[in-house]
Design a protein around this nucleic acid. Structure first.
Length: 697
DNA sequence: ACTAATGTCCTTTTT
DNA sequence: GGACATTAGT
C-alpha cells in the first residue's frame, strides 16, 4: 500500500542505519519530531487515534539509543507484551539489533521480573506462584469459608467474586474500603468487619502459600520503591528513561510505581507517557484518566505535545468518529484531522433481525475478499464476546477462517484448568486451591475427604509422603491410589526431564493418562476438550521448564491459536473477531461493528452511572477509529435479550449514533432478499412536524 | 456422613 | 454452560 509509512518497510542491508533514521525522521510531522527529540524530563504526549503514536514512540526509543543511551537502560511499558515486541522490532529497523536489549513489557510482567530478582532481599521468596483472577477468586472462596460469617447466612454476604473485586479495587485505586463499600456496595456495609476478616485471611493465605495475585505484583513493586533504602535506589537506578504507552488506562498504583522509578534523588524524571483521554476504556480495572490530566502536576515541569493529525482513516470515517466524541461530557476538546481526501461514508446498516445482520456481514466480507482485500485486513468488533456467537457459526458454515481475540476462553475452560492444577502442585505443593481442584475430580472423593486430605498434607509439611500416607475412607481408596501413583510418576518425569526442552509437554501427557478418562466420563462429546488439551500440550512444549510456563500462562496468556499458528502453518489469512477492548491500538482496512443498539452498546449494565455511559461512548469511539478505509456499523431492528424476570427488547439504535452522527453516514436498509438498498441522497426532513404541530395554537 | 444428581440463576471489558 | 444451592441416594 502506497501510503504506508516507510518505517514499515524492510531496511535494505547495505544502507547504514543512521541514514535510514534521518530519512525517516524527516517524514515525521513537527509535533512528532518535538516528542522524539525531547531531551529529558517529564513528557506528556496526548495522541489521538491514528496519529502515529507508535511511530513516534519507536522513533523516540531509536533517538535515545542513537544519542548514546544504553538500550538496556530504557524501559518501555506497554499494555500487552505484544505491543512492546512490535515497537521493539520496528525500532530494530531504525537502529539495528541494539534495540532488542531495550526492556519492554507490561507493568505486571516487569513487576514479575524485578520481584524475582529483588524480592528475596525483602522477604519474598523468588519462586512465588502467580494467581490469575480465577485462581485468586477460588482462594477468596476458601478465605470466605474460613473467616466469613457463621454457617447460616442470616444476611446476604458478598460472593467470592465481589470480595475479590472489592480487594482489587481497593488496592488499585487506593480508595479506602469503607468508602468503596458505602459507594458501590451499600447492601454490605453492615458486614464490614467480617469482610475485613476475610480479606485479612485471604492475604494471610497468600503469604503462607507463597502466592501473588495480579494486584500483589504491582503493590509489591510500589512498596519496595516507597520503602526507600538501598533496594529502592537500586531498582530506580536500573533505567535512565522510562516510556509508558496507553497512559490513559493506567491506575493510581501504577502512577505510584512510576514516581518511584524515575527522578530519584533530585535527578530529572526522564519519563515519557503517551495516551488519549478519549480512548480510556479500562476504568473497571481501576484505571483513571486523572493520571493523564494530573501528569503535569505530578511531574513538575512536564512538556506537553499534542498529536492531532490522523494518518489512519479516511475523512469520512474521521468525521463520524469526531461527531460521536463531540457530545462527550468531559475531556480535552480536540478534533482529529487529516490531509487526505475521499473515501466512502461509513455505512449504517439496518437489518431486520440478528440472522440478517449476520448474513450481511458474511456476504460483505466475501465480496470484499473477492475484490482483493485480505481477510486479515478486516475485523469485526463487538462489545462483548458472546455477541459474535451467531456470526462465528455462520463463518464456520461458509468456511471463512477467523481468529477470535479477547475473551479467550481457552485457559478458563474447566478441563484446561484441571490439567494445569496438576502442574501447579508439582511446582508449589502448598497450592491448596489446586489440590482441592484435583481431589474433587476423583470419583469417590467429595468435599469432606478432600478437606481431610489437605489437612493431612498440611500437617505433613506438604511432603509427597504426606499424601501417600493419607488414609482415605473405603470408597475413595481406589482414587487415592491412582492419584498417588500418578503424582509419584510425575515427580520421576521431573527428575528425568529437568532442564530438557519439552519436559512440560511430557508432564501433561503423563497427567492425561489419568485425566482423559475422567473427561470422557464427564462429557458426552469430549473430542473438542481433548483437542484443547492437545493444544495445551503443544504450547507447553515450547517452554524450557514448568515454572516459566506457568508464569507465562498467568501473565501473558497465548492469544488463542494465532501465536501457535504462526510457527506452524505460516501466515494464515484470517478475519479477526475481537472485543473492542482487545482491539485497542490496532487498525484494519475494513471494520464491521455489529449490534449498535442501546442495551449492547452501551451495554445496559454499564448505564448505572453517568461515568459508565461516558466510557461506553469512548468504547464506541475506539471501535470506529480502528477503520482505515471502510466502516460498516450494523444493527438489527428486532432482537431480544433474555434477562431474568424482564426480557427487554433491543430496538433502539445506539444513543451514540444520534442524528448528527447518522447524517454523516450512508443509510442502508436490507430487504427481504438481503439486498442492501442504499439511500444515497439522505435529505434533511423538509418539514418540521414539531413546528407545525405547535403552530396550531 | 458423604457423594452424586438435579435445579436455578446469570452471562462485560483484562493484566 | 457454568457456578452455586438443594435434594436424592448410598
Amino acid at each position: 500500500m502506497s501510503d504506508l509509512p516507510r518505517i514499515y518497510q524492510p531496511k535494505p542491508r547495505d544502507v547504514a542505519a543512521s541514514t535510514d533514521l534521518e530519512r525517516d525522521f524527516a517524514g515525521l510531522n513537527v509535533e512528532q519530531q518535538r516528542a522524539v527529540v525531547h531531551p529529558g524530563g517529564p513528557l506528556l504526549i496526548v495522541a489521538g487515534a491514528g496519529t502515529g503514536k507508535t511511530r513516534t514512540l519507536v522513533h523516540r526509543v531509536a533517538h535515545l539509543i542513537e544519542g548514546g543511551v544504553a538500550p538496556e537502560r530504557i524501559l518501555l511499558l506497554t499494555f500487552t507484551r505484544r505491543a512492546a515486541q512490535e515497537m521493539l522490532s520496528r525500532a530494530e529497523r531504525l537502529v539495528g539489533a541494539a534495540s532488542a536489549r531495550v526492556h519492554g513489557g507490561t507493568f505486571h510482567g516487569t513487576a514479575n521480573r524485578l520481584l524475582r530478582r529483588y524480592g528475596p532481599s525483602a522477604g519474598l521468596p523468588s519462586d512465588f506462584t502467580i494467581l490469575d483472577q480465577a485462581d485468586a477468586e477460588d482462594l477468596m472462596q476458601f478465605a470466605r469459608a474460613a473467616a466469613g460469617p457463621g454457617k447460616p447466612h442470616e444476611k446476604r454476604f458478598p460472593k467470592k467474586e465481589t470480595l475479590h473485586w472489592l480487594y482489587s479495587r481497593h488496592v488499585n485505586t487506593e480508595i479506602p474500603l469503607e468508602t468503596l463499600l458505602g459507594d458501590e456496595l451499600p447492601a454490605f456495609v453492615e458486614h464490614e468487619p467480617a469482610i475485613r476478616a476475610v480479606l485479612r485471611e485471604y492475604t494471610r493465605r497468600k503469604a503462607e502459600r507463597n502466592l501473588l495475585d495480579y494486584d500483589d505484583l504491582l503493590l509489591s513493586w510500589a512498596m519496595l520503591l516507597e520503602r526507600g533504602g538501598e533496594l529502592a535506589d537500586r531498582m530506580a537506578a536500573l533505567y535512565d528513561h522510562v516510556l509508558v504507552d496507553e497512559y490513559q488506562d493506567t491506575n493510581a498504583l501504577q502512577a505510584r510505581i512510576l514516581r518511584g522509578m524515575v527522578g530519584r534523588g533530585g535527578a530529572p524524571a526522564n519519563l515519557t507517557v503517551v495516551g488519549d483521554d478519549a480512548q480510556s476504556i479500562y476504568s473497571f480495572r481501576g484505571a483513571t484518566v486523572r493520571n493523564i490530566l494530573d501528569f503535569p502536576r505530578d511531574f513538575g515541569g512536564a512538556t506537553l505535545v499534542a498529536l492531532e493529525q490522523n494518518y489512519r482513516s479516511t475523512p469520512a470515517i474521521l468525521d463520524v468518529s469526531n461527531a460521536v466524541m463531540a457530545k462527550a461530557s468531559e475531556g480535552f476538546r480536540k478534533a482529529l484531522w487529516t490531509s487526505r481526501t475521499g473515501g466512502e461514508r461509513p455505512w449504517l446498516v439496518t437489518a431486520r433481525d440478528e440472522p440478517q445482520q449476520t448474513r450481511f456481514i458474511a456476504d460483505r466480507i466475501l465480496e470484499l475478499y473477492e475484490e482483493g482485500i485480505a481477510l486479515s485486513g478486516m475485523a469485526v468488533l463487538v462489545r462483548a464476546g458472546f455477541m459474535s456467537a451467531d456470526l462465528e457459526i455462520e463463518l464456520q458454515r461458509r468456511g471463512i477462517p477467523f481468529d477470535k481475540w479477547g475473551g479467550l476462553k481457552f485457559l478458563e475452560a474447566a478441563h484446561v484448568k484441571d490439567v494445569l492444577a496438576f502442574l501447579r502442585i508439582l511446582e508449589n505443593p502448598r497450592d491448596e486451591v489446586s489440590w482441592y481442584r484435583i481431589l474433587l475430580l476423583m470419583p469417590g472423593i467429595g468435599e469432606a475427604t478432600a478437606r481431610s486430605a489437605v489437612e493431612a498434607m498440611s500437617a505433613g509439611a506438604w511432603a509427597p509422603a504426606a499424601f501417600r500416607h493419607f488414609a482415605p475412607p473405603a470408597r475413595a481408596q481406589a482414587a487415592h491410589r491412582a492419584l498417588a501413583a500418578l503424582l509419584d510418576s510425575l515427580r520421576e518425569t521431573v527428575a528425568v526431564g529437568d532442564g530438557v526442552g519439552g519436559a512440560v509437554g511430557l508432564e501433561i501427557a503423563r497427567v492425561r493418562t489419568l485425566y482423559d478418562e475422567l473427561l470422557r466420563e464427564k462429557y458426552d462429546r469430549p473430542e473438542a476438550r481433548l483437542a484443547d488439551l492437545d493444544q495445551l500440550q503443544t504450547i507447553a512444549s515450547g517452554y524450557p521448564d514448568r515454572a516459566s510456563f506457568l508464569t507465562a500462562i498467568a501473565l501473558e496468556p497465548p492469544q488463542a491459536t494465532q501465536d501457535l499458528a504462526q510457527g506452524e502453518d505460516g501466515p494464515d489469512d484470517a478475519l479477526v473477531i475481537s472485543t473492542i477492548h482487545s482491539a485497542k491500538g490496532r487498525e484494519w482496512d475494513v471494520v464491521f461493528m455489529p449490534w449498535a443498539v442501546d442495551g449492547y452498546l452501551p451495554l445496559a449494565r454499564s448505564l448505572a452511572t453517568p461515568e459508565g455511559a461516558e466510557e461506553e461512548r469512548r468504547l464506541c469511539y475506539v471501535a470506529l477509529t480502528r477503520a482505515r478505509h471502510q466502516l460498516y456499523v450494523t444493527y438489527p431492528l428486532n432482537a431480544y435479550a433474555t434477562r431474568r424476570g424482564a426480557d427487554y427488547s433491543l430496538d433502539q439504535v445506539s444513543r451514540y449514533l444520534d442524528r448528527d452522527v447518522r447524517e454523516l453516514m450512508l443509510r442502508v436498509a436490507l430487504g427481504d432478499d438481503d439486498r442492501p438498498a442504499r439511500d444515497d441522497a439522505p435529505v434533511r426532513a423538509p418539514i418540521d412536524l414539531r413546528a407545525l404541530l405547535g403552530g396550531r395554537f
